[in-house]
Design a protein around this nucleic acid. Structure first.
Length: 400
RNA sequence: GGAGGAGUGCCCGAGUGGUCAAAGGGAGCAGACUGUAAAUCUGCCGGCUUAGCCUUCAGAGGUUCAAAUCCUCUCUCCUCCA
């Protein structure tokens, strides 16, 4: 393996990260790696509990990909051991214990999604139960002796909860130790994580020192805000762009990101260089965003899918014409008495009649290019309808 | 083990016998404005056979003409003391 010049590698790695401890250590590791021809071991840990990845996770995956492209070894660590125990307390972190089967199933889903970005053949997948299930009480106690409670309490979320009188379970205290011990087992050179992982990753350094290893470099990645532009992207907040969503949806959702936030997306997710991004800033923001949307669709699918998502968007919204490939709904018109029934049967997004009525009354229903806003009105006399429901839903309806 | 506090609609949160399908905010949906931007503004926002009816305020019973509100038990969560 021929490695790039360490300084250049460092430049690529440092881009877009929120913290790096320390770049000096990383540089010396990179130099050593090039001299000995040994790739660095890059650790990233994942819980097998929530296998629905979104662009927020991609920030980390993208950085792993950078490492991968530089020739280093990615270790994708699945925290199956801890997931089997579950979490009895902590409202925000309630994690039910998972069975072996669920974990395996989740891991598969995980891998499928992760390898949309990472190169499967160059990624090593490990499960931490491999060594943790053999860890004795004695071993665990030895680890606990290395950690001071006062230090644990310094960790931001513990600190807040302790002061605010919110429960902290002992398990939560132990959790970072286990994660840190994983680094010892892997002998990782670098660990990546979100800024919320700061404490855990740094503790990994302490443990590695304790076991006479060279401490890992810690890299922290920033949080990506979701579609609302304020809160972090997360599934539970519904402001996410999922990696397995349809390319058309990915494209559309990226387009609805605010102009300001778009640049952060560029920084964290795009393969473009800083100069290229600077040049894009002179374009109309919408055009820059189209480039971003296309790139991200391509990242998660391929060029042709991205192209067709782009064309689809142009048709629907830029030219405001009815898309040729709108979903087709076949309907027995004899069963349809009112417009309300009609929309309800055609749309996949309406929950109730009240919903459908509201949509019609407020002007969200267009059939064959005409607005239908009277709920007692009649359907046009035709056998084929081009129906637009709300802003985003297009259906072609064929009657039987 | 002891003492105290809390559980309300998707989320936060007001409501302490009738005027409560339940204030306010957020989210969501639709419309206007646009670039499907963002921000803003307007309307909607439990369900239905909609001047009405039905199901909701942790769960089960009870008091009452009437209960989210009062009583009993149960469950869950939190805090403090041990």
């Amino acid at each position: 393996m021929n490695f790039l010049d360490p300084e250049k590698q460092l430049g690529i790695i440092e881009r877009g990260v929120d913290g790096l401890i320390s770049s000096k250590e990383l540089l010396s590791k990179l130099i050593k790696s090039r001299e000995t021809g040994r790739p660095l071991k890059i650790k990233a840990g994942f819980d097998p509990t929530a296998p629905d990845l979104h662009l927020g996770h991609c920030v980390l995956l993208k950085k792993l990909k950078d490492f991968q492209e530089l020739g280093h070894e990615i270790i994708f660590l699945i925290g199956d051991f801890t997931a089997q125990i579950g979490d009895p307390a902590g409202k925000t972190e309630t994690r039910p214990a998972l069975t072996r089967d669920e974990i395996i199933k989740n891991s598969k889903t995980y891998e499928r999604q992760v390898f949309k970005i990472l190169d499967k053949s160059k990624t090593k997948v490990l499960f931490n139960s491999k060594w943790l299930s053999k860890l004795s009480v004695q071993d665990l106690l030895a680890l606990t002796s290395q950690v001071n409670i006062a230090r644990l309490l310094e960790r931001d979320d513990f600190n807040k909860r302790y002061k605010g009188g919110v429960a902290i379970t002992l398990k939560e205290f132990i959790y970072p130790l286990i994660q840190a011990y994983d680094s010892v087992q892997i002998e990782s050179d670098v660990e990546l994580g979100g800024t919320d992982q700061t404490f855990n990753i740094l503790l990994g350094r302490d443990f590695q020192r304790y076991f006479n290893q060279e401490p890992q470099v810690a890299i922290f990645l920033p949080i990506l805000e979701g579609l609302d532009g304020v809160k972090k992207m997360s599934k539970s907040l519904g402001n996410y762009i999922g990696v397995e969503e349809d390319p058309v949806d990915i494209f559309g959702k990226v387009m609805s990101v605010s102009d300001e936030l778009m640049w952060k997306y560029f920084d964290l997710l795009s393969a473009k260089t800083e100069q290229e991004i600077t040049e894009l800033k002179s374009l109309h923001p919408m055009d820059a965003k189209k480039i971003l949307a296309k790139e991200l669709a391509e990242l998660l699918y391929d060029k042709s899918a991205a192209e067709s998502a782009f064309r689809d968007f142009e048709t629907k919204f830029s030219k405001r014409s009815f898309p040729k490939d709108a979903k087709v709904v076949k309907l027995d018109i004899n069963n349809v008495k009112t417009l309300v029934d009609f929309v309800l049967l055609v749309s996949g997004n309406l929950k109730s009649k009240g919903d459908a009525k509201r949509l019609i009354i407020q002007g969200g229903l267009t059939i064959n290019g005409e607005k239908y806003s009277d709920i007692d009105g009649d359907l046009p006399d035709a056998t084929e309808f081009e129906v637009k429901i709300g802003k985003k839903e297009f259906c072609k309806v064929l009657t039987k």
